[in-house]
Design a protein around this nucleic acid. Structure first.
Length: 590
RNA sequence: GGGGCCGUAGCUCAAUUGGUUAGAGUACCGGACUGUCGAUCCGGUGGUUGCGGGUUCGAGCCCCGUCGGCCUCGCCA
């Protein structure tokens, strides 16, 4: 070992101990007669002091140290004098009085310093990720991620779950996200797909009798990125046999409680609240509501139907909806210009306009107020439980547009007005998603969750008559406006499974071709089973109160899915392509 | 595929309606300083304003294209 201690552990009780530390020079302060070095490793920072009495060679070496040099220092721990402590450092009551110094590796001047206050742009951070990762902030993110995975593994291990790895090289299946493909060398023209999730494998494990399975699974989806979405990510994947929905919910309730206790040292109240999909869509306009604040969506259809404002009236006549939100005490906070900006914002979510009213004493103030009788104005105020000084926003459109626009507006205002504590975790279940959604473009039903999901028993008759009415035995876990987990009770009967496939427009022949192995497995004694997958990266992000998933991944990709550090993806040698029987045809015919 | 924001010194930013030699802080280099801790003080190096074209007497600023980063809609069973 090149060191006896880390840079984060020396305290007053170590005074007098001879120590050797290794680390990076975080900063230097040269006073000619005395040189201070803040030495950093992932455990913390310790101040090293080089004094005048030292050997002149050591003095000279110390004076030449610059940021990010890697050094080894030996000396003794001394208490800092009265008034010389640094309360900002955990080690700030002591310092190491250096006796010898060796420069393990001189650093080039780094493009930015880990201790920087003004974070450089993300491009530079990603291309020099090894420096960015030296920042205490990112280090503590990855440490928390580690703690979460340990906590998860302990929780499941203590409950007889087995962690079982499933293949990365699998079979491409239709439906779902775009696959990342891997060409086969030995079977020309054939491809593996990287897993979007271990879904089918874990169901096969249930058939095989591994009745409690979990895995920290790497998953891949070739879709466009977002702040909370990376093309490769990790799931806490769980599946259980001989259980129903209730068992899964309770198991995951326990997991959330356990991880919150392990990571935050606090007790999270259980059971986690449960909502139906229909309820959250009505109250929040989204299937992943941020429950840290109110400002729920209110329907004023009845009032709108008879008012003199033709936009509202016609929307109701044509089967649309008029819904709104009440922004408490915001009447004076939003100028006309600010409201215009919000109008553009909801426009990006499909709304053709944004009506607003400022609430005065018992009446409404707005360019469109004149289209509403005093009684109607009172009715609106009453309906939204509004008081003087409140600001009301309304969107009139197809129901789905009012949901999309108002939920986006609600999220934006909630954040901008600071209506919640960003560190709070508000976790809840959303149950009974619809089985299918009608896809306008493709002119067919598509699975809302996935095609292996068990419908509610009482809705099975609607499979043939009214698929849109069929509710799935599915459940999402939402947290702070994010989908943090998603799961369902699975179909364990090949006849039902085939029925679902055919409803999705997958013929019996195609189903056999694509999923024959699964249908077959279901014929050989498949137990009732159910499962769920939690987005690991998102949970880490949520625990940190962060809103970028990249800050909890050691080596993330950019929005174009490239790795600025290594240069991936890149062209490959023509010989590699030949081995794989692949000819490349670039767009534009190059 | 669509919409938006951004790109100026190694880094973070500034630069008046389009107008002189593109500035500041920091980093870096040199000097001063025996207790600092985002050290301080003095001096200095450092620029293809992402790239290519255009408009103009004149472009960091306006226009077109392009590359890259971020946010977002679509997409993400």
């Amino acid at each position: 070992m090149l060191r006896t201690h880390t840079c984060g552990e020396l305290r007053l009780d170590c005074v007098g101990t001879p120590v050797t530390l290794c680390g990076w020079v975080d900063s230097y302060r040269d006073h000619r007669g005395v040189v201070f070095i803040d030495l950093r490793d992932r455990y913390g920072i310790t101040q090293v002091v080089f004094q005048l009495e030292l050997d002149s060679a050591v003095q000279a070496l110390a004076r030449d140290l610059r940021g990010e040099d890697v050094i080894q220092v030996s000396g003794s721990v001394v208490a800092r004098g009265e008034g010389l402590e640094n309360p900002k450092l955990a080690t700030g009551q002591v310092e190491v009085r250096a006796e010898s110094l060796s420069l393990l590796n001189k650093s080039k001047t780094p493009p930015f310093e880990p201790r920087t206050f003004d974070l450089p742009n993300e491009e530079l951070r990603l291309s020099h990720r090894y420096i960015d990762l030296r920042r205490p902030q990112l280090q503590s993110n990855l440490i928390l991620r580690h703690k979460l995975t340990i906590s998860v593994r302990k929780y499941f291990d203590e409950r007889d779950f087995l962690e079982i790895e499933t293949p990365m090289l699998g079979k491409s299946t239709p439906e779902g996200a775009r696959d990342y493909l891997v060409p086969s060398r030995v079977t020309p023209g054939a491809f593996y797909a990287l897993p979007q999730s271990p879904q089918i494998y874990k169901q096969l494990l249930m058939v095989a009798g591994y009745d409690r399975y979990f895995q920290l699974a790497r998953c891949f989806r070739d879709e466009d990125l977002r702040a909370d979405r990376q093309p490769e990510f990790s799931q806490i994947d769980v599946e259980m046999s001989f259980v129903n929905q209730e068992d899964i919910l309770q198991t995951i309730d326990g997991l959330i409680s356990r991880t919150v206790r392990d990571l935050r040292g606090t007790e999270h109240p259980l059971p986690l609240p449960r909502y139906t999909h229909a309820e959250v869509m009505e109250r929040f306009g989204t299937d992943k509501p941020d429950l840290r604040f109110g400002m729920e969506l209110i329907d004023i259809g009845e009032i709108a139907a008879t008012c003199g404002f033709s936009v509202f009236q016609k929307t109701i006549e044509s089967g649309g909806r008029v819904r709104g939100i009440r922004v408490e005490g915001a009447a004076e906070k939003f100028s006309r210009k600010a409201i215009d900006e919000l109008t553009v914002f909801v426009g990006n979510h499909g709304a053709k306009g944004l009506a607003f009213f400022r609430v005065k004493d018992g009446e409404l103030d707005s360019p469109i107020a004149k289209f509403f009788t005093p009684e109607q104005q009172k009715a609106i105020i009453q309906r939204l439980e509004a008081g003087p000084g409140d600001l009301l926003f309304f969107v009139a459109d197809k129901g789905s547009v009012t949901s999309a626009a108002l939920s986006a507006l609600r999220n934006r205002l909630g954040k901008e007005l600071g209506l919640y504590d960003p560190n709070e975790l508000k976790v809840a279940w959303v149950l009974d998603f619809p089985m299918f959604q009608w896809d306008e473009d493709e002119g067919r039903w598509v699975a809302e969750h996935h095609p292996f999901c068990q419908p509610h028993e009482e809705d099975i008759p609607y499979l043939e008559t009214d698929p849109g009415r069929v509710r799935a035995q599915s459940y999402d876990l939402v947290c702070n406006g994010y989908e943090a987990a998603s799961g369902s009770v699975r179909i364990h009967d090949s006849v039902v499974q085939q029925k679902i496939f055919s409803l999705l427009g997958i013929s019996g022949e195609e189903a056999e071709l694509r999923f024959g192995f699964l249908l077959n497995a279901l014929r050989y004694g498949a137990p009732p089973h159910a499962g769920i997958a939690l987005g690991l990266d998102r949970w880490v992000m949520l625990f940190l109160g962060n809103d970028s998933i990249r800050d909890v991944i050691a080596f993330p990709k950019t929005q174009k899915a490239s790795d600025l550090l290594t240069g991936a993806p890149s062209e490959v040698d023509s010989r590699q392509l030949r081995d794989l029987h692949i000819r490349v045809e670039l767009p534009g015919g190059k």
